[in-house]
Nucleic acid binder design. Structure first.
Lengths: 227, 227
DNA sequence: CGTACCATTGAGTTTTTTCAACTCGCGTGG
DNA sequence: CCACGCGAGTTGAAAAAACTCAATGGTACG
């Protein structure tokens, strides 16, 4: 999604500062308490909505989906998380979302308590925590924009472009999530997602070898659709 | 909006800790650099999307709307801000949103730089900054849920209940924003907002003395609608 | 008293959802 | 080895929800 603002908020000027910050955070995960967790299998939960927020994770490999369930059963997927991502940092005392493995997942965890304690005497770490939360906030606002103002085609295009960017692969890629997951992320039904992908294929925007394997054929065209 | 989770993440147990934290933040605004800004008039901007994020504000009185404009002109309102709220804390290097006064607004501002500097040696302040960003993130996720999964009636109900809660008044209250602002916040058109409010009035859920002055007649009924 | 802006309402259209049927791939058990 | 069943995905037709277009109402302000 494009907004009327040229540079990303973290401009190159500050790049190095941020790398240092994230290093501070990464370093915390290499410390004594960063126990590698036994790998999670698909459908395993790293944590559940309502759980005490005891641990913070960093994903080493695999894909994770996070979602909330409304009291009447409707589900809202808040995001997909890939290797390198932090999970659980932006929780309050309780986790607001359930984090569930989509594929086999390896992750390392640290105690939230320990992270807080370290942050109290490590200003770099404290700033890193702040920045990571700000980034999460920004992603959530982008997501809200998608949900509020884009049409079905635009939403699916935004999803594909975003995911391709996260994968970091201009080529084809595999989707670790179901159509239902995508639908619940984009605030649509599985039917509309499916139809929209079919239309995109007819229009030559994408190629789907199988339902999970997607190739973006005309990236610039898809990116135009996102705004 | 209700989610399947009983307590709010900041449970009473931690109430005092949070008060201390926010105090750290409030205190920072009482320091030397916290210059009171000349009052903003309606439609004045505190800052604009794309501006360098130099100042952080705390609203003393009045109401502020924050929004982003898509490249094709569509507007997405990300929130409404009332007295006591902080503004600009969750920005990166540039502001991602425009913050505009809806009513006459008094606010105090501090240099972002100074806040960062202070946080480097004040762990309490650093944690307060983290928490405020987490809260902003949570609000944004709630907003995303509203946009993705609720119907028109549910959205308007969620907006009214949320706003009434922020005002802290069970009684009637005045809306500082136009129907268009509400529509752009809820991802709907002005027409649907207007129609929905009319239907709510017919059903005896609300009473509207004038278009801006609303009274919630059956709060519990409205709250049920939000989930 | 006229103008401007905000808000409401009706009628028709578009988009998306709902309901239902059907396909495809895959693993299991006969 | 093949039939069967199951979950995921696709697609068509009808229905519902929200949007667009257009007209009208109300209020404040010069």
């Amino acid at each position: 999604m494009q907004v009327q603002r040229q540079a990303d908020d973290f401009t190159p000027v500050f790049e190095s500062a941020i790398m240092v910050d994230e290093d501070a955070l990464r370093t915390a995960f290499v410390g004594a308490a960063a126990a590698p967790r036994s790998p999670f299998q698909p459908n395993d939960c790293l944590f559940r909505q309502g759980d005490a927020a005891r641990l913070v994770y960093r994903i080493v490999s695999g894909a994770v989906i996070s979602y909330r369930i409304l009291s009447d059963g409707r589900r809202q997927v808040s995001g997909f998380h890939l290797s390198g991502d932090f999970l659980g940092l932006e929780a309050g005392v309780e986790h607001a979302v359930t984090a569930e493995a989509l594929t086999p997942v390896e992750a390392v965890a640290v105690e939230r308590k320990e992270l807080s304690a370290r942050a109290a005497c490590d200003a770099g770490l404290a700033q890193a925590l702040w920045r990571v939360s700000i980034q999460a906030f920004r992603r959530s606002e982008d997501h809200a924009m998608i949900l509020a103002r884009l049409s079905a085609v635009e939403r699916v295009a935004a999803f594909l472009v975003e995911f391709a960017g996260r994968i970091g692969d201009d080529e084809a890629f595999d989707l670790p999530m179901t159509r239902q997951d995508i639908a619940d992320y984009l605030g649509m039904t599985i039917h509309t997602v499916s139809r929209t992908l079919s239309q995109m294929q007819e229009r030559g925007l994408i190629e789907a070898r199988s339902s999970r394997h997607i190739r973006l054929l005309r990236r610039e065209c898809l990116e135009t659709l996102c705004a």
